[in-house]
Amino acid sequence: MQSIYLIRHAQASGQEPDAELTDLGLVQAERLAELLADSAIKYIVSSPWKRAIHTAVPLARTVMRHIHTDERLQERVLSTRHLDNWMDVLAHTYLDEDWAEEGGESSRIATSRGMEVLKELWGRSEQRAAVITHGNLLSLLIRTYDPSFGFEQWKMLSNPDVFVLERQGNGDVPMLRRCWNG
């Protein structure tokens, strides 16, 4: 594997696992497929949540690849209870990576499961892969490669958003760059 495209899903109607893409989100997913049509993506893995899969479908059709799903790419749950102050809670999770609200997942644990997927991808024989996930998990994966990426940068992510990790030569440490901000 030489390149992994990290993709946040297109605009959705909500945050629950079965939230659909909006009409705009469907258009964005098609534009995303057009953008990545010439990128030679050979492997696609997505969160099993509906909005991520529906973002992946036009890309899979364009590059003629199957969509693999992986539960480790689903969005992080901040808490099992309703949080009126969820933005404050989320901000705190960037400052203390081991802290979690009741029933929630810490940044460290969420990052770990996402990085397991990336580690497996780096070991695959295909040259390029696409990972379709959610904003918070995406930001945590980016933060692994760019420690300055935090809560404020998360707030500036768009739907969709695309970053790419690229290995240079035989280097083990991939370079991160943003390649599209939908």
Rank of each mutant, 00 (worst) to 15 (best):
R76T: 01
V77F: 05
L78Y: 10
R81P: 08
L83M: 08
W86A: 08
W86E: 03
W86D: 11
M87L: 14
D88H: 13
V89F: 00
A91D: 07
A91C: 11
A91H: 11
H92C: 02
T93Y: 02
T93C: 02
Y94L: 04
Y94D: 01
L95N: 10
L95K: 15
E97S: 13
D98L: 14
A100F: 09
E101K: 11
E101I: 09
E102T: 12
E102C: 12
E102N: 06
G103N: 05
E105H: 10
E105I: 01
S106T: 00
S107R: 13
S107D: 02
R108M: 04
R108D: 02
A110P: 12
T111V: 12
R113K: 03
M115S: 01
E116K: 06
E116A: 15
E116D: 13
E116Q: 12
V117N: 01
V117M: 09
L118K: 13
K119C: 12
K119Y: 11
E120I: 08
L121W: 07
W122V: 06
G123L: 08
G123Y: 14
R124C: 10
S125H: 15
E126K: 11
Q127K: 15
Q127M: 07
R128Y: 12
A130K: 07
A130R: 07
I132H: 04
T133N: 00
N136C: 06
N136E: 09
